[in-house]
Computed example of a mutant assay.
Amino acid sequence: MSYASVTEPLALVIFDIDGVIRDVSSSYRRALADTVEQFTQGAYRPTAEDIDQLKAEGIWNNDWEGSMELICRYFESQGGDRDRLNLDFEEIVAFFQSRYRGESAENPDHWTGYICDEPILAQRPYFESLTAAKIGWGFFSGATRGSAQYILQRRIGLESPVLVAMEDAPGKPDPSGLFDSIRQLGAGPTCPVLYVGDTVADMYVVKNAAKQEGDRPWMAIGVLPPHVQTHPDSQRLHQQRLEEAGGQFVLKQVTDLTPELILQTVR
């Protein structure tokens, strides 16, 4: 099934992937915690709350950079100077990938890491329902192209979906990748666009897009990632963060964003 089956769409929905289409609480986030623990010599392993607090700053969408930032902050808390730490970013990335993808990181056929066990949060029939309702869809994610394609094509079975990944655009909250995905979908300049994400940076993407292209209707839709739904206080805090960052509304799961709700929202 291809996005191209939608002509003259009534709306476009662009999805983030991590925390929206797949549950990364035991994969990306686990790899991040492993990496920080490794490069602080076992002295500090960030909790889920530590990572959420970092993400709430709205600029740490890249988990490699987030890992390095938490490492630096730990040593600063111990009286160190980050400029003298002599950290090698490529070593940090390599270690992260060895946990997330596995030791054979370049070949998806041989991946054995955390990515292999990620729960999928939206299956192929959901996207088929969007197409049937004349709603175009695609993906703009900070994940690497390899890991995103692994989930979208191998695990879900989507055929050549529009995907703008880490290698294709500046990191969020820069909206360039969102604009690129819209161009690939070929919708007109007044077609409403919904961007669906689980972080503050995702909500900021829509704010920044609206500043540059104010004539198009823009909507930021928040989704609560599974890991924050394990405790009412975490869920409430995350929802508040998304709403304060510009989320028009916040859902518990992406499939709650039904074709009916989308069309109702854009009318």
Results as ranks from 00 to 15, higher is better:
A132Q: 14
R82I: 03
D117K: 13
D198Q: 10
Y204G: 01
R154G: 06
E106L: 08
A187V: 11
R84D: 15
D168I: 09
M166D: 12
P161H: 06
R84S: 14
A148L: 02
W137L: 03
G138K: 10
S181K: 02
A133M: 05
L130K: 06
S104L: 07
T144R: 10
D109K: 13
P175Y: 12
A105R: 14
G102Q: 12
L121P: 03
I135E: 08
D174W: 05
V206A: 08
Y204N: 11
Y195P: 08
T144W: 02
R101I: 05
R145I: 08
E106W: 04
D180W: 04
I156A: 07
E118W: 09
F95I: 01
R82Q: 13
G188H: 12
G80T: 08
L194P: 05
G113I: 04
T131F: 07
I115R: 07
G157N: 03
S141Q: 06
G197Y: 12
D168S: 06
F96M: 13
G138V: 01
R154N: 11
F95D: 00
A122M: 06
Q153P: 00
G142Y: 02
L130M: 12
G102F: 10
S181P: 06
T199R: 06
I182T: 03
A201M: 00
F179I: 04
S160Q: 15
I182R: 13
E106I: 00
Y100M: 14
V193C: 10
E90Y: 13
Y114D: 15
G146I: 00
D202N: 08
Q149D: 10
Q149E: 11
L130I: 03
V206W: 09
S160G: 00
Y204T: 11
V206M: 09
E91P: 01
W111L: 09
G102L: 09
E159V: 09
L178A: 10
Q184C: 06
G138S: 05
L158V: 01
F96E: 08
A169C: 05
V196C: 07
F139C: 09
P170W: 00
F89A: 08
K172Q: 08
I120G: 05
Y204D: 10
R82E: 15
F139K: 02
E118M: 15
E103Q: 15
Q78K: 15
N208Y: 11
A165Q: 01
P119Q: 04
Y150E: 00
P175N: 09
H110N: 11
Y195D: 05
G177Y: 07
Q184F: 05
G188A: 14
A201Q: 02
